[in-house]
Design a protein around this nucleic acid. Structure first.
Length: 289
DNA sequence: TTTGCTCTATAGTTTACCTCA
DNA sequence: CTTGAGGTAAACTATAGAGCA
């Protein structure tokens, strides 16, 4: 800032800093008051609020410095705060009234309210941010918990599927193809309806026990043949294929021995790679619906 | 309906002052 | 004691919208 012949820099102090213009050197002052202190050789900090006995000196400063910024007194601020609390917008009448009561210019009152609203808004934003962050953190924790639950249930499904296949192999060998009664445990925590996809209220494929979360899930899965020839494992695979929308052809192939090419939608139907190993797909459909 | 004026709002910036290391 | 950095309040600028003649 260049004020006439004087150079001010509010971020600086006069001591030790000079600006060189041609052959002349000029000190840089932080503000006008720094200059006056420098000029008078009294580089002492001045108290912010002036005592009455210092008034003459204060008037001297007022004369020397046309524009000055004065902090509002605590009483002025208290009354302004009180008024702001009642209403943060300022009608012309109230502005004049306040200015008169506080010994301020109406413009000062208006500016104070403008700045006060800005401060209030900043504070409000901070508060809102904290609240939203707490809410977000809570949701993340909840999501993590659900993911863990899903992982555990998924492992359980894999294990049960293996058991089904094993028992089926043994059972078919011993019973000559008759369906055997499997002992499915109840799902440990989450209700099946939360984890499985249902359409309509009616279960069209059921183990009869009503306890199988896996088989009671999807109405698109066809009922077994009347003679009960479709095995439990096949029905499991079919049910999953129907849910994922992936591998229906393969599942049908498994049941009906048709072409079974496994060419739809890039899904893998390799015998050794079960439907459950389509991890991403399964996660996004089976476990999240 | 359009235009110009006034007032007030917000957002962003500058200035002056204070505190503290 | 002095200095500089950083924080904050007061004041300013630019811009936009509402109300009114």
């Amino acid at each position: 800032m260049d004020s006439g012949r004087l150079i001010f820099d509010s971020s600086s102090s006069h001591a030790g800093r000079m600006i060189f213009l041609g052959d002349s050197a000029f000190p840089i002052f932080r503000d006008a008051r720094s200059f006056l202190r420098f000029k008078n050789g009294t580089n002492q900090p001045r108290p912010f609020f002036t005592a009455p006995e210092d008034l003459l000196e204060e008037e001297y400063y007022d004369e020397q410095i046309p524009e000055k910024k004065r902090r509002l007194t605590t009483e002025q601020v208290r009354l302004l705060e009180k008024s702001f609390e009642a209403e943060n917008k300022l009608e012309p009448e109230r502005k004049s009234e306040l200015a008169k009561n506080l010994g301020l210019q109406p413009r000062q009152v208006a500016v104070w309210f403008q700045n006060r609203r800005a401060r209030w808004k900043t504070k409000q934003l901070e508060t809102d941010f904290d609240r939203l962050k707490a809410s977000f953190d809570s949701l993340v924790a909840n999501r993590d918990s659900l993911l863990k639950d899903n992982d555990r249930l998924r492992s359980q499904v894999l294990s049960l599927t293996e058991k089904v296949r094993e028992k089926e192999r043994l059972g078919l060998a011993e019973t000559g193809g008759q369906e055997i009664n499997l002992d499915f445990p109840s799902p440990p925590t989450a209700a099946p309806t939360q984890l499985l996809h249902r359409r309509g209220g009616e279960d069209r494929l059921s183990t009869g026990s009503g306890e199988s979360a896996i088989l009671d899930a999807d109405p698109r899965v066809p009922l077994p043949d009347s003679n009960g020839e479709s095995s439990l494992a096949e029905r499991l695979l079919f049910a999953d294929a129907a849910r994922t929308g992936c591998g229906m052809a393969a599942a049908r192939g498994l049941l009906k021995e048709d072409d079974g090419g496994g060419s739809d939608d890039g899904c893998s139907y390799l015998p050794g790679a079960g439907i459950f190993e389509e991890a991403d797909h399964v996660d996004s459909w089976w476990f999240w619906n």
